[in-house]
Design a protein around this nucleic acid. Structure first.
Lengths: 251, 251
DNA sequence: AAAAAGCAAAATCTCGAGAAAAAACAGGCA
DNA sequence: TGCCTGTTTTTTCTCGAGATTTTGCTTTTT
């Protein structure tokens, strides 16, 4: 997320207004990585990219440094930048920790949430419901759904007073978002809305245990679905090995 | 931590060998921030700092961007960089989440740790014990203790197979390290070694509940001690307000 | 007085070119 | 063929100077 919003916006959902070319390049690059325009494991050569994104080399380097903090880009001194690799193990790891952190945040939210929190959650759920009712498979629709889904999950934990917890959750959420894009459309048979409904109902009735269980199931199911996804690319190993042509790491 | 070591070294304790000027400046800056040479809330002016650290402006900017990911530096487009503020609330927040994450990691370690893990823990505890026995108040001693303490906490969770969990713990640990430096020497009356001993014993005897309880108490006590510390600086607010002289944010 | 507007100084942001390092390639040797 | 070695090419890393924005101070207005 934008450095200035690290602790304000949980999932950095809303208005990220770039004020400099660095931030501009950062947002564009992040979008392209999450959407898969730059495949996991591929090199990000500054010389080429600076033309694509219309900025100087130094500027692009700085944008890449920012992406390192989101763990979307990996770098090694004197050897350049890569798009972070993905793997089933990594996704499982992310999922496990998302459950740990998000259920904790939800627990706090339910315990301390005010009327404002309920109102926000209600609004976010409504927005999500509307787009889930008329869900076709267009890319535009998916992007809209992605945005509202993020809004719903953010609203769930909005009353959590721990800035750090929200910040850490944000990091993990964006990671899982990238995985989800790679399995686009493969979870058609799954009834996501029912899961959301259950979480929503439990949260609104302030039932901690039931809400957390529903949320855990929800996140776990995502892992299960993605694991079965046929479009999931072969897993390159994390640290780029020295090889002749390492546009794509070996294995 | 160094971008290339984000997921390898948990607390980035060991060999962080800078390969470029950027990494060099990053490590030097981080050291100076943690040790309090740059006070929380103060501006980090690129123009001045580039001379102090002997690098170009662009290089220093990149190093600062790296520090943003450690949440040690805050930045806002077109307005520059600041040392992240500290506050009692922030410390409490960090502590709460350290407990959540580190006890989880310890639980996993105890459950899955091999003989190798026990051996590593034993060695780390021995190193720590030796320095705690002859503890005077010299800065050199304290630095040595800090390093070995980090090693002990790292060894505790070394058998945790979740890279992400270790990574997140590392972020929080460095934050609390900064707070600890600000309260140097104020925990003289506390018997830290006894706490470490209890954690160690419980972990070695594979008693999950007892070990986690001891670790939680240990981390909590740190919060309590630091909260009482007289040398703790006044808490500046996180986002730098627009003020005439904001070398030190208001309040 | 307090607030708004205007001006000067400082700092940030940005780019392109040169130095240094790594990767790719080719040739020689067992 | 397989492996080491030296050369060429590509890429990263670094710096300094110029454009833009912000900031601080002074003056003017209500």
């Amino acid at each position: 997320m934008l450095p200035s919003q690290k602790f304000t916006a949980a999932f950095s959902a809303a208005e990220e207004t770039p004020r400099t070319l660095v931030e501009n390049a950062y947002l564009a690059l992040r979008q392209d990585i999450i959407e898969g325009k730059h495949l996991p494991g591929t090199r990000l050569r500054v010389e080429h990219l600076k033309d694509d994104y219309g900025v100087g080399a130094g500027t692009l380097r700085e944008a890449l440094s920012l992406l390192v903090s989101d763990a979307l880009v990996y770098s090694e001194g004197q050897r350049g930048f890569w798009v972070s690799s993905i793997s089933p193990e990594d996704l499982e790891d992310i999922t496990r920790n998302r459950i740990l952190l998000e259920t904790e945040a939800l627990r706090i939210s339910i315990r301390t949430g005010t009327d404002e929190w309920e109102a926000g959650l209600m609004a976010a759920f409504h927005r999500l419901t509307k787009v889930e009712e008329k869900l076709n498979n267009s890319a535009q629709q998916f992007r809209e759904w992605e945005e509202r889904n993020r809004g719903f999950h953010e609203a769930l934990i909005a009353a959590c007073d721990s800035r750090w917890l929200r910040y850490l959750i944000g990091i993990l959420y964006r990671q899982s978002e990238r995985y989800r894009r790679f399995a686009l459309g493969s979870d058609s048979k799954r009834n996501v809305h029912a899961e959301h409904q259950e979480i929503y109902d439990a949260a609104m009735s302030r039932d901690e245990k039931r809400a957390c269980a529903a949320l855990e199931l929800h996140i776990s199911t995502t892992l299960f679905v993605l694991r079965e996804a046929p479009s999931s690319p072969s897993p390159p190993t994390q640290p780029p090995r020295r090889s002749k042509r390492d546009d794509l790491p070996p294995k």
